[in-house]
């Protein structure tokens, strides 16, 4: 066991971990931040996406030890300071961009990373960017719509919400 320290959602954290402990295990098991989910074991599904030093990372692809000293943001750190939903979260609710909610944290984290790099993506660009996030419930229609709406684009022409 060894000690790891990192800032998570603006707070200093530390814990005793094994060398093989993944970042997602540190977040879920050590810090009890269970909003970050595990949907696969081959780094395909994207339910565990978090931000490490501003970059979207699948938290199952990184050892906790690799995040030593890093600034990590999880879904629990995404709401506005007053606790209200941020723009992306609100767009997901407004446009029914989630059903069971399991992939949702990863979707929101990926969407935030996309919009940071590309503030007004096309529908095609959104779909391409989400290649690493699997949703089984929504058929992606309303997720794509929510992300386009969160970028400030008019989605009223897109059929049916």
């Amino acid at each position: 066991m060894s000690k790891v320290s990192m800032r998570v959602n603006g707070r200093a954290t530390s814990g005793e971990i094994e060398g093989r402990t993944l970042l997602v295990e540190y977040l879920r098991d050590t810090l009890s931040l269970t909003g970050t989910h595990v949907g696969c074991d081959t780094s395909q599904c994207g339910a565990c996406v978090v931000h490490v030093d501003g970059q979207a990372i699948k938290a199952c692809t990184m050892f906790a030890a690799e995040a030593e000293g890093a600034e990590v943001t999880t879904i629990e750190g995404m709401a506005n300071a007053d606790g209200s939903l941020n723009t992306i979260q609100q767009a997901f609710q407004d446009h029914h961009g989630l059903q069971c909610g399991f992939c949702t944290p990863g979707m929101v984290m990926s969407a935030a990373a996309l919009l940071k790099d590309n503030p007004r993506p096309s529908e095609h660009e959104v779909r391409q960017y989400l290649e690493g996030n699997i949703c089984r419930c929504t058929g992606y229609h309303n997720i794509v719509k929510a992300i386009l709406a969160a970028s400030g684009q008019d989605v009223s022409a897109i059929a049916a919400e």
Binding site: L33, T34, G35, T36, H37, T74, I75, E76, M78, A79, L85, Q89, F92, Q93, L98, C100, G101, F102, T104, P105, V108
Partner: peptide
């Protein structure tokens, strides 16, 4: 949606 969007779901 509120709890699912904020990481507060309880699976």
């Amino acid at each position: 949606d509120i709890r699912f969007l904020t990481g507060d779901g309880r699976y």
